[in-house]
Amino acid sequence: MRGKIVFLIMAMLLFTGLAYADLEYHKVYKPQAGMTADQIMEIKYFNKYSLFANDYESVGDVVFMEKDGSTRNRRFLRQRIILGRASDDVSYKDLVMFTEPTSVKGLATLTWNYMNPKRDQDVWLWLPSLRKIRKVSASQANDSFMGGDFTAEEITSRRFTDETYKLIGEENFKGYTSLFDGKVYHKDEPCYVIECVPVRSPWYYSKRITYVSKNFGGNIFDEIYDPNGKLFRTIFRGWIIVDVGGNKYPAQNWVEGHDLRTEHKTIIIFDEIKFNQGLSEDIFTQKTLMRQRW
């Protein structure tokens, strides 16, 4: 059961993040020439969690890929409502429901995220094997994300204030060849190259070099270095631009983590991405978790 709890926390954290006070909700931001590394990273975090939209929905697949190429899959439905509501401090609420395979079918999480960056999320899990809702605390930042090749903070909980930033260059991204489908993504994307050093020390990484797109403000690629300064992991993030009533919304549709030591890969693919569907806040309650039947 513990495995399922961690899995769900991780799954939930996939879709959670922290709001950034300086940027206004429901607006689209792009990096501008002359911005500092801090300003670029603020926009990067804002876009990562889709805080420009009213709501968000997608179907996703998590693929665990072994060194020999064999895979295990998880499929989920994700819904989010972005509120940015000062009266009760709610930034956004997330619902994640796993639909396949049968071994995880029915697992679901509900998360309420707050505008105050010091306030932790409220997280509830629906565990079909127990038929009950469980309130849990969010996972530790350096815990493995869903057993994959990311840490929890890399996908979810890292805050703007967790690192210091230095703009070290601007270049066209050389492109990322996916280890999953062999395709090349984001070739020649103009990027800011930013060095991020964790405030916490010692920590599981000494620094990371991140490539943030000049066109839409999303980070495309992370090179992560261990405490000895050796590159040990990479994370690629693919983005698409979704036209919503004339607004150009950046949306992550691919995340690929590669552990260079073990050659294990984890790929998260988002499909059927929809914004501003008019989701009701009533969906994001425990009652919805209890509707799970499997």
């Binding site: 059961m1 495995g3 294990h264």
Partner: peptide, 15 residues
Amino acid sequence: LLVSTDFMHERLKPQ
């Protein structure tokens, strides 16, 4: 008391 963990990318789960 329940103690549980996982290995091999959550493939192996002892408790």
